[in-house]
Amino acid sequence: MTELTNKFDKIKTVEEAMSHIVDGMTIMVAGFVGVGSSYRLLSEILEKNVKDLTLISVDAGDPIVGPNHIIKNGQVKKLITSHIGASTATKELYNAGKLEIEFSPQGTLAERIRAGGVGIPGFLTELGMGTTVEEGKQKVVLNSKEYLLETALRADVAIILAQKADEFGNLVFSKTARGLNPLMARAADITIVDAKEIVPIGDIDPELVITPGVYVDIIVQGGSDWPWPWE
């Protein structure tokens, strides 16, 4: 079996990866109620206790999984999300005025992140017209129809969970743990991947690569996982 060479210097220790995460940053954390979220890196962010983060995540997790812990720990000043219903701590901080939240419909949130990753500054959508979503947003008329202008999202760091990474950072995901991972991997200045398995280049069939390695800066070996509600 071919050995890992780390010739692209992307495989790092968790400590090296964490040195890129500092106070005041905007971070993206992929995952849907924890499925597709990196337990290891979120645990490290909790441990490091970096503050004043702007967090972009589809949800706030639930009391056990996902970004709930770093929100509960007061590390997040602003959350851009579509749903917080399963995280009691997030709802309490929001209701107490200790956490700013920008709600985006889930598809609009995904598209804003996609736009951020593909060099598009914003896009037009009819979604949210006639609802509170349109408040404060610019409206644009195109072909006699009115749309909301939704802006792209980018982050300083993206926290990605992959099923498998090769040394160059080519990524493969698993089932519904894919979610926002491939989109966020493209939309940050530094993309950090927690890979359950790291393999030499050439081991992943190019046809199966979901995220090309050019988007990946740092790969860490995956660790343990959350206990799941049904366990």
Binding site: H83, I84, G85, F103, P105, T108
Partner: peptide, 9 residues
């Protein structure tokens, strides 16, 4: 206020 998730879409 749980958030709209994907319901609007």
């Amino acid at each position: 206020i749980p958030g709209m998730g994907g319901a609007m879409d």
